[in-house]
Design a protein around this nucleic acid. Structure first.
Lengths: 187, 187
DNA sequence: GAATTCATGTAACTTGTTACATGATTTA
DNA sequence: TAAATCATGTAACAAGTTACATGAATTC
């Protein structure tokens, strides 16, 4: 469901191929929604059947042909209708294997757990760095053009990434401290 | 995959029915992994076929019979093997419809967006309250029995919930401020 | 008297993942 | 020369959701 509306939302700006959409996905939406190429193709043909999209094959020399998808008026309407109606309870779909493992981690040596937390912090620091770069890019776009609503709103999602990564890092540091205290107490 | 290991992990402590597992799930694991009853039943019969579980039907008067699942030695081994091998990249499975909507929200009136953020903050404050209650319960269990490893490790997952909810709230407040500034600038 | 809890599941469906198949061009 | 990129998809499978079916006991 959500995926189809994402695709419609992206196609409002310009027609794209399934491949284009996946590429765009990877560098934006991917931070809070994932989809495989095969899933995107399936969704696109479903949306075409529903009349929300049209497609046009574009010949290319020396390259495989492009199948460009265009959004229809009905598609635009469906997208905006979805966007306006926020469902009751929103938030993350909360599947986190790290937490599942941590829940059972009393059966693991504490030294191993500290190691996994250190790795987790490194990963999060890396993610934080990526968010900062994206934020800078959006900042300069916003500075150049005050009326750039799109960049302004997208920036809010990036800010969330920054808050999130920082919060995860400070939590993980707290955990390492507590486990370290536990280890030294048990010696 | 993860679900089967969760079920095995829970059945190490004591035999349970599918229904028991779902009940337990709802008040613990559910904060970072979700599963429907029908999915749990399917997974249980799969795990039995694989030899990781045995089942025994227990007669009850005036109630439907209970089908209790017991973990086998092979099941324990499989669970511990999974727990020891942390995969390369872990973290949340990052599906967040709120962020998807926010990404496209430049097409929405800013006043509506502020409304959604306020609702989001309320939801998160509520979640935070739940985590604090659970933390208190675990704290007193840990205080009574210093060697209570299980409660100590489970508490770390609750601490994450607290960090997370606080971080979401402070992010959402930041967003409201920025949007409010944007609204007054455009007047 | 209605709703919830206890307890089992099946069936149909949607969503998401992985592997396979094709084939030219560009980059390392 | 090997790989990655561009570009299309199909097929099989795994995971997750929703609806249906049954029925007693308890609680509001």
């Amino acid at each position: 469901m959500t995926l189809s509306f994402i695709l419609l939302g992206l196609l409002i700006d310009r027609p794209m191929t399934g491949y284009d959409l996946k590429t765009f996905f990877n560098s934006s939406i991917n931070f809070f929604w994932s989809a495989e190429l095969s899933q995107i193709y399936r969704e696109l043909s479903r949306l075409e059947k529903q009349g929300y999209l049209n497609s046009k094959v574009e010949q290319q020399e020396g390259r495989p042909n492009k199948k460009l998808y265009y959004i229809t008026e009905a598609g635009k309407k469906a997208f905006l209708g979805w966007l306006e109606k926020f469902p009751e309870r929103l938030g993350s779909e909360s599947k986190n294997e790290f937490l599942v493992r941590l829940f059972f981690s009393s059966r693991l040596p504490d030294e191993d757990l500290v190691f996994h937390f250190r790795k987790y912090i490194k990963d999060m620091e890396n993610e934080l760095g990526i968010y900062r770069i994206i934020e800078e890019r959006l900042n300069s776009r916003i500075a150049k053009d005050i009326g750039c609503r799109e960049a302004f709103h997208q920036r809010l999602t990036v800010r969330r990434g920054i808050h999130y990564a920082q919060s995860e890092i400070s939590w993980a540091r707290e955990c390492i401290e507590e486990i370290t205290r536990l280890i030294s107490r048990n010696k």
